[in-house]
Amino acid sequence: MDKKNHDSEWYTHSKLSNIQDSTGNSRVSNFVAQVHTLNTLHFIVGICQIFMGLAIIMASILGFINPLWVSISFTMVASITTMIGLYFLYITVSKSYDSRSLLRNAMKRVMKAKN
């Protein structure tokens, strides 16, 4: 190879670290690789959103939030947050059991293999 190809931005010298080498070393990237799909992450986020909304509602009912208008406003926001969390959880679970997802995933694997 001539000097022009060695100085190209597409060429990685053997002494330099590759992008894949640098991302494979962190704990976060290992965790994301183990989770493998966003459905698991969405499921966890939905459960946390439901739990936090119900915790605020329980704190409001038990009287830990003293001014009544603050307690009512927190209860309303927490109720809406809980409903959104339930809907998010429903969408995540129904998407994972979709009959067309097998075909869609196969098409994605074929496209990745071609690239």
Rank of each mutant, 00 (worst) to 15 (best):
R104Q: 09
L102G: 03
N25V: 10
S94C: 15
A78N: 01
S26R: 04
M107Y: 12
I47T: 06
L41C: 08
I57P: 04
Y90S: 06
G24K: 07
G85F: 02
N18P: 00
V35W: 14
H36I: 06
A59Y: 05
L54I: 08
S79E: 02
K95V: 03
V32W: 08
I61L: 15
I61W: 10
H13E: 11
H36C: 12
N39D: 08
M52F: 13
H6L: 15
A33R: 13
K108N: 12
S71L: 02
M76I: 14
N105V: 07
I80C: 04
N18Y: 01
L68G: 10
L68V: 14
I84G: 02
E9A: 09
Q49M: 15
L68P: 10
A113V: 12
H6T: 11
V93D: 03
T23Y: 10
L62S: 06
V93K: 09
N5G: 10
R100W: 06
E9I: 09
L103R: 03
A59F: 09
T12R: 07
I72E: 10
V35H: 04
K3R: 13
I72V: 08
S8M: 02
M107L: 15
F64P: 00
M58K: 14
Q49A: 14
T92R: 01
E9Q: 06
V77W: 11
D98V: 01
V77K: 12
I56W: 09
F51I: 09
